[in-house]
Simulated scan of single mutants.
Amino acid sequence: MILINEQIGASEVQLTGIHGEDLGVVSKVEALAMARKLKLDLVCTSIFSSPPLCKLMGRGTAKQAIAKKQKRDQGQPAKVKEMRLTVHIEDHDYETKLRQAEKLLTAGNAVQFVVRIQGKEGPQAKELLERLLKDLAECGKKETGIQLSGKQATIKVDPI
């Protein structure tokens, strides 16, 4: 959290000028007066030090910095990428899908595997998904269990 101007609660602050020059320890009142005189904001950059570190910044610059920090903290929600397979997948194709899934998971995306089922292929589809889970154990964990429904079996894997 960044404190600006009157939000700063300390009586003294370690002040840094506009161009990074050290102005020493000054009272909060004096620092605020200096900021107003120069038409700047007094921004607390570190509340954990004693006295807190404060910097003189241009109006609006501090607000932009706060908005940027909040946006970075929120981040993007993980995207879910769908990968379709069949029960009769060959080894080379399986390895290719496995590498793609590892790339997606290490990039922070979730992967949903969908296995198409025809006839009585349900147990085989379940085995294939369990094999995928075992092979992806170091970079992903299952969010949902294996769901068999109608003509497909699905499982969602989240990044670790």
Score class of each variant (00 low, 15 high):
Thr16Ile: 02
Gly17Ala: 05
Gly17Ile: 03
Gly17Gln: 03
Gly17Glu: 04
Ile18Met: 11
Ile18Val: 08
His19Tyr: 14
His19Ala: 05
His19Ile: 10
His19Val: 08
Gly20Met: 11
Glu21Trp: 04
Glu21Ala: 13
Glu21Lys: 01
Glu21Cys: 07
Glu21Ser: 15
Asp22Cys: 08
Asp22Ile: 05
Asp22Leu: 13
Leu23His: 08
Leu23Lys: 02
Leu23Val: 02
Gly24Cys: 04
Gly24Arg: 00
Gly24Thr: 02
Gly24Asn: 06
Gly24Pro: 09
Gly24Ala: 00
Val25Phe: 01
Val26His: 03
Ser27Glu: 07
Ser27Ile: 02
Ser27Thr: 10
Ser27Gln: 03
Val29Ala: 11
Val29Arg: 14
Glu30Val: 13
Glu30Phe: 14
Glu30Met: 04
Glu30Ile: 11
Ala31Arg: 00
Ala31Gly: 00
Leu32Phe: 12
Leu32Pro: 05
Ala33Glu: 15
Ala33Ser: 15
Met34Trp: 05
Met34Glu: 09
Met34His: 10
Ala35Ile: 05
Ala35Glu: 06
Ala35Lys: 06
Ala35His: 06
Ala35Ser: 11
Arg36Phe: 07
Arg36Trp: 12
Arg36Gly: 10
Lys37Leu: 02
Lys37Ala: 12
Lys37Cys: 02
Leu38Asn: 02
Leu38Phe: 01
Lys39Thr: 12
Lys39Tyr: 05
Lys39Met: 05
Leu40Gly: 04
Leu40Gln: 09
Leu40Lys: 14
Asp41Arg: 10
Asp41Phe: 07
Asp41Gly: 07
Leu42Asn: 10
Leu42Asp: 13
Leu42Ile: 09
Leu42Thr: 05
Leu42Met: 10
Val43Ser: 02
Val43Lys: 04
Val43Cys: 08
Val43Thr: 08
Val43Gln: 07
Cys44Leu: 10
Cys44Arg: 10
Cys44Tyr: 06
Thr45Pro: 00
Thr45Glu: 11
Ser46Lys: 12
Ser46Thr: 05
Ser46His: 06
Ile47Lys: 05
Ile47Leu: 13
Ile47Met: 08
Ile47Cys: 05
Phe48Gly: 14
Phe48Ala: 14
Phe48Ile: 11
Phe48Cys: 04
Ser49Val: 10
Ser49Gln: 10
Ser49Glu: 11
